[in-house]
Design a protein around this nucleic acid. Sequence first.
DNA 1: AATAGCATGTAAGAAGTTACATGATTTC
DNA 2: GAAATCATGTAACTTCTTACATGCTATT
Lengths: 174, 174
Amino acid sequence: MSLRMALLGLLEENGAASGYDLTKAFEKSTSNVWTAKHSQIYPELRKMETDGDVTAVAEGARGKRTYRITDEGRTELRRWLVETDPNRSTRSEACLRMFMLPLLEPEEAVPLLRAEAAVYDIRITRLRSIAERAREEERTQDWYQCLMGVNNMSGLRDWASFVADDIEKRAAGA
Amino acid sequence: MSLRMALLGLLEENGAASGYDLTKAFEKSTSNVWTAKHSQIYPELRKMETDGDVTAVAEGARGKRTYRITDEGRTELRRWLVETDPNRSTRSEACLRMFMLPLLEPEEAVPLLRAEAAVYDIRITRLRSIAERAREEERTQDWYQCLMGVNNMSGLRDWASFVADDIEKRAAGA
DNA sequence: AATAGCATGTAAGAAGTTACATGATTTC
DNA sequence: GAAATCATGTAACTTCTTACATGCTATT
């Protein structure tokens, strides 16, 4: 259900969009919380059309199909958000990896942790400026979404720095 | 590969373990970063045995099989950690949902966001105390892992609170 | 003797990835 | 006219979930 709900959410937020647009949207903002490739998105949109959650409002050049969320889709999205309880399990290969880095020897673990922290740092800076622009232009949804990314990544960056420091301290002490 | 690496990581960390033990471990600490059910874990362990990443070191009552990581498995895990670059995409239904809550009317979104924040708050408190115990008992790996959960959840909790406040403020202003 | 927990397994189906495939349009 | 980008599709494969299935052991 999650992919469908993500697509409905994007359509609700951005009005009409093509599979191509939605693929881009996944690459951009949504990728912090969910991912999907075009090979999954196109067939899902067709199924959603069959199920009445979306309608194709235009068919353009190069086979382009633009979809819009229907009232039925809107109701389904709402019900999912309000009435079902969330599956709180998470899958993040990057986190799994960081989780296990302390298994390595300090000389290996520390630089890898610092490198991770640096990667997140760059991403946070970039996302923060995108967030700021969204705020200024009063694209509130976008702003909130960017902030979630910033918060998530800040937690990871701080964790990686802290653990790197701690491992170093212990290695020095031993 | 992620499931396999997660299992190798757990075996490296905890010494020998059965599929049952590993399933428990996934439910506990690992679930913050990766999840797997027993129906996926048992067959994967058999495959890992065939591939030489683990060996069964004991077969006990009720068909119990205890596995240990081999040198080959250790090498594979190390290589994965050190040489391959991470897939940074994330899947979290709970985040996806929070991501979309601001699409609802303020009267609906705000209580749901506050409820989410409260759930995370409880979990953070619990995890922090588990972390503290791990630190005292010098189970350093466990400590780091708990802290990652704390950091991740704190980011989400703060985000939810902030967004709830912001929506309320805007609704009052409008 | 019933319940909870230990311990594993498999089959069917859903979800997700990788790779191949096609062709139009815009920009340089 | 080459390259980038727009735009969609599908087949084969891997991964993951749900549900069913079995039977032992410890506790109350």
